[in-house]
């Protein structure tokens, strides 16, 4: 018995183990998550629409009004993150609070805020782009590709 070195579990294949885990692991509450994402995401867009109509009501032309709305929503996202509310919304809203541009603002403020302790350059300056950086990189990349394709195909 003392000679038994290779444990018997290791004979259990990774695939079999994954099956066992899938049985034991609690499920995501898909339906609840989906409904909450819809409601939270929809509400954020509704607020955006309200702000958009206020700006167009002020006589801003459509594109300017849209840019101003984005900036306002970004402000709201950053502010709610700063006062510690946005992560609570995110706990329930999931993608409903990640996908809107307020979530983009949240992804900038959250790492920057706690990285302040590592300084203003490598802390705030660098860490604010942990998530926003990839978004901008791929956004720019695809927009340039689309521009070039349009130039060639037009």
């Amino acid at each position: 018995m003392n000679e038994k070195t290779g444990s018997s579990e290791q004979q259990l294949e990774a695939a079999e183990y994954q099956e066992l885990i899938n049985k034991i692991r609690p499920r995501h509450t898909f339906l609840k998550n989906a409904i909450l994402a819809f409601l939270v995401g929809g509400s954020i867009c509704l607020i955006g629409q309200l702000i958009l109509q206020i700006y167009t009501g002020q006589g801003l032309e459509q594109q300017q009004a849209q840019a101003a709305t984005s900036a306002t929503m970004v402000f709201l996202g950053a502010f709610l993150t700063g006062i510690g509310v946005y992560d609570q919304i995110g706990k329930y809203g999931g993608a409903g609070s990640i996908v809107p541009i307020t979530g983009f603002a949240n992804s900038i403020v959250a790492p920057a805020m706690e990285a302040r302790r590592e300084g203003f350059v490598f802390g705030i300056g660098a860490k604010m782009f942990t998530i926003a950086g990839p978004v901008l990189v791929y956004g720019f990349l695809i927009s340039v590709l689309i521009g070039i394709s349009y130039f060639l195909l037009r």
Binding site: H28, T29, G90, A110, P111, M113, E114
Partner: peptide, 21 residues
């Protein structure tokens, strides 16, 4: 909790959902 979240997962104020497990 907060140092571990920072190092292994997400910033504390990031609005993420934690799975039930």
């Amino acid at each position: 909790h907060n140092t571990a979240e920072r190092q292994f997962r997400f910033p504390i104020e990031q609005g993420v959902q934690r799975p039930p497990f």
